[in-house]
Amino acid sequence: MFNLKKYRKKSPWILHYNAGSCNGCDIEILASLAPKYDLERFGVVNTGNPKQSDIFLVTGPVTLRSRERLVELYMQMPEPKVVVAVGSCSCTGGVFRDMYNVEDGVDRYIPVDVYIPGCAVSPELIIDGLVQGLEILEQKTKEMEKPLKLFKESTCEEGIVNRRDTALKVGKIDEKN
């Protein structure tokens, strides 16, 4: 039986989510997919569909409005998966840090594997970060990974794991602390 794990890093499909970014980093992500930097030579496909992707590229400082979707998308990605925070904002909050309407970085909500700093990030850095992420992806198991907040424990009926409503909706109690 040959090792399936080694193929993980040969075909990373990415999901790109903009959690309130200024679009600077998003343009750079697209630039790195375009002919000049050609991410596709690593087998990268920009799927836009969480259910078929391995790498979650998040840009932006996570505005309050985007939290729910961030967690929901994260829950909809099948394991093994890697989260890459792209840009200063998503790493630490960047210039928006401590503002009333943003959370300071993606890692408040979901576990982040690779941080790529820069405002905006350069395509070379994105490529480098992705390759780092692939190393991590190869080591991961298929154990379910859980968000840090806005999360309800998943139920398990008759051996079937149900992760349908595990990501909570921001409702009466605001979870910002």
Binding site: Y7, S11, E79
Partner: peptide
């Protein structure tokens, strides 16, 4: 590449 994708997809959580 398509075959790499194939092996990877088999390895993923369904």
């Amino acid at each position: 590449q398509p075959f790499y994708d194939m092996w990877k997809l088999i390895d993923k959580q369904a």
